[in-house]
Design a protein around this nucleic acid. Structure first.
Lengths: 322, 322
DNA sequence: TGCGGTTTTTGACAAATGTGAAGACACCCT
DNA sequence: AGGGTGTCTTCACATTTGTCAAAAACCGCA
């Protein structure tokens, strides 16, 4: 749990680390007894255990059940026709970052249970998704692919669409299929030309192989990610909003019922379209925060999600209105 | 991990337990910080965490990988054509009970990963199997059934075939199909009559639905379980052994190549036969100890197992001879 | 409102765990 | 052989965690 420790290197024999960890976690001995049995000082036992934790030998997690069977979970499930809803406690209200990290963490621990060997998982872009991939443990999924659902974009934050998918792929020991093009081009002709490029074409084609997807709901306001990252201008947003857009899903605008709201940007964008995100085996919506309530509702009504991860305050808000 | 604690009851709100556990295990705060945040004494935090552990909210386990990728594991896998081999460190040599508990524990943590929704799991009888079921955490598997592969028997130990399957079913939240008849009758006619009983017949029929099985290898000697529990006499064993029997699999005798060795007891026994244990999706052999080396080799050669759990000393012995 | 009985919380102490600097050890290079 | 270099271990101390008995809060009931 606590901070860095131990002398540098990866240490000699792993055997003894395993033995110490076994005695400590499986047999419940304390460090003194272990030290005696192994014939080393207790401090060494501390080091072995530390190394075990660092190397991922020791896995500590909270059970999923309490979060899945919470009354808010069941309500969300029923209201929006979901297969399951993971609701984490909101924690300190006001601290949006803390809550976001909780939701991301929860998504990261839950995700492996939702995957199977052979899956192809589409991944969207966003802070939550990024934190999810970053913070999760490595859990190999056999014969698995991760594909990037949207093109790249200028990054006002420290992460990119590539990073989201690459990191997740790494965590799952999956092959990563990136989409090495900008999310938006300055004109439709160029976008069209790029889409026709063999390499890009193949990558876009791979999107059709996705049987599962992980995404967030983006807000459709002047402060949204999509504006800050330069995909759309505040004017664009205003225009879309006037035409009913209430959420952003993988860069595309959708209205309050989750229907795609086409517009001037579509032709210039490269990435998955909403129609292709319907009917997947798994659609995992990972989002939270008061500003995401409206977009989440839109995405949920559109039927894009079969599963959701959020916090209790957001869940309450989702259920409260309408 | 440590001993009993806390005042009796199941405590009021679970919310705060979850919150404390989240802060402690997911966010790495120490108990003082948590106490401050929650506005309670640190002692209360200790109690919440204790309760979380008791209620199964907090799951601590060692990763499977090190045990599956150990060189002995790979050797076993290759030598006996297994899909995977879980080899735990032998620990204190000479202390057979300690090793058996390790193997049982390992089997219990590994098993859920080998199961899927919809499985029907056949379960044999034995100390190892019993300890496995007893010591494992509850991990619900959807739409799952556990069936008892052998009839019941007098119990010189504290457990029965019923208990093995019942407890495992409980751990997996599975339906349990018991076989409420003696494993052995005093004469073939009676056994025949029992087998024809509608209720028993249906239960025996259910054995055919098993797609997975968990079993141990029994030794074929005068000291074996099968003698101590009164199924066979020392004389029976001697006879079978003279005819090549080297192991006991679910109460039936098999030779060094794992072929069924028929004999006088078969007609009087009620339970699965070796031929029906071949070709399952999963055959999990869980055994260890020097006396089990010969029987395990027989069972492995017979192709009954696709997966195995054992300790490193036993693994070495299995590989060493022949 | 006051009173047994019970559950929950807490403060003070005890035990277990974590840390940093110093020491031991092995290995390699000359 | 000698000395440098890096790893691994250990000692002495700091921090964190666990325990117990006593106090506080709670609850139903007269």
């Amino acid at each position: 749990m606590s901070g860095r420790r131990r002398t540098p290197s990866p240490s000699g024999s792993f055997e003894i680390v395993v033995e110490a960890a076994w005695l400590y976690y499986n047999e419940g001995l304390n460090q003194n007894e272990i030290a005696r049995r192994l014939g080393v000082s207790r401090a060494s036992v501390v080091n072995y255990l530390q190394e075990g934790r660092e190397r991922g030998l020791i896995r500590i997690r909270l059970a999923d059940e309490p979060f899945l069977t919470h009354s808010l979970s069941l309500d969300l499930q029923k209201r929006f026709g979901l297969k399951a809803a993971y609701v984490v406690p909101a924690g300190s209200p006001g601290d949006d970052t803390a809550t976001l990290l909780r939701v991301a963490k929860a998504a990261g621990t839950w995700l492996p249970a939702l995957l199977q060997a052979g899956d192809t998982i589409g991944v969207a872009w966003g802070r939550t998704i990024h934190e999810m991939a970053e913070g999760m443990e490595t859990v190999p999924v056999a014969d698995c692919r991760v594909v990037q659902l949207t093109g790249s974009m200028a990054t006002p934050y420290g992460f990119t669409a590539e990073l989201c998918s690459a990191r997740l792929a790494q965590r799952l020991n999956a092959r990563c299929i990136n989409l090495h093009v900008p999310a938006i081009l300055s004109n439709a002709a160029l976008a069209e030309a790029l889409r026709a490029e063999p390499l890009i074409h193949a990558q876009l084609h791979a999107l059709g192989d996705c049987n599962k997807a992980v995404f967030a709901a983006g807000s459709c306001t002047a402060e949204s990610h999509i504006v800050l990252s330069g995909i759309a201008s505040a004017a664009d947003i205003a225009g879309y909003r006037a035409r009913g857009a209430r959420a952003v899903l993988c860069g595309r605008f959708v209205d309050e019922a989750g229907r795609h709201v086409p517009g001037p940007l579509d032709d210039r964008m490269i990435g998955i379209t909403p129609d292709r995100m319907l009917g997947l085996e798994l659609g995992l919506l990972v989002s939270c925060g008061p500003d995401k309530v409206e977009p989440m509702q839109a995405v949920l009504r559109g039927g894009y999600a079969s599963h959701i991860v959020t916090d209790s305050a957001t869940a309450q808000a989702l259920l409260g209105e309408g």
